[in-house]
Amino acid sequence: MHPKLAEFLAGCRDEAPLQLGVVPFGMLYGIGAIQAGMPVWVAQLASAVVFAGAAQLVIVQMLAVGAGALPIGLTSGLLNLRHMLYSMSIAEHVRHLPRRWRLLLAYLLTDEAYAVAILRYQVTPAPDDRPDLRHWYFLGCGFTLWLTWQLSTAAGLLFGASVPAGWDIDFAVPLTFIALLAMLMKERAGQAAALVAALAALAFAALPYKLGLVVAIVLGLVAGVWASKRRGAER
């Protein structure tokens, strides 16, 4: 097998288990979009244009209660701000790539694709003796997620109404995050960052426009840096 294809398929394979959380997420979005009165084609298009699950879910929830464009725009703008941090953390790994690659990978930089790809970048160092093909792995992660997101949106739009609420399929979303978190906290000195971010998310829950999430992540970062400085294990 060609090494590029092998890397791509490895990315697809490692991203695959996460789809168990992505499918209900996408379906919930589809169901929510119909309930909010969004035309089906607009809802499907949004999954390609916005391509950010948490934000899309919030958008349809806000539309359903009649929120205006400004609060919806502000909320999703703040909610998605964390992607800029993902972008920063992935920047050094994709610097050597041509611009078309960087644009494509930026478009695919979602929570779940980022989490799997960054683990690969941080755990598997670049090989010395042959070209670094880890961007193909990243592409495999992003592509898998993109495809599932489009298909599960469509599934939610088409037959979402027939999934009983008592099944709690939405619970698969935080479970995915918990699985990722356990892996990330094993690999990095991330415990302090995670703990403070989680507590701060609750402490600042009342802030409008999902501002609490932004504050929580920033405080988590500060705590993480402070903790690793204290341990003297910086870099």
């Binding site: 993902y86 920063m88 979303v173 000195a189 991330g190 995670a194 609750l202 829950a205 992540i217 870099r235």
Partner: peptide, 25 residues
């Protein structure tokens, strides 16, 4: 350097905040 030091905490902080919100808010 200081941004580089920050980067390693981005993923755990983000996913912890998201998870706490899903569970308790």
């Amino acid at each position: 350097g200081w941004l580089h030091a920050l980067c390693r905490h981005i993923a755990p902080a983000s996913f912890a905040a998201l998870t706490a919100g899903e569970l308790f808010i």
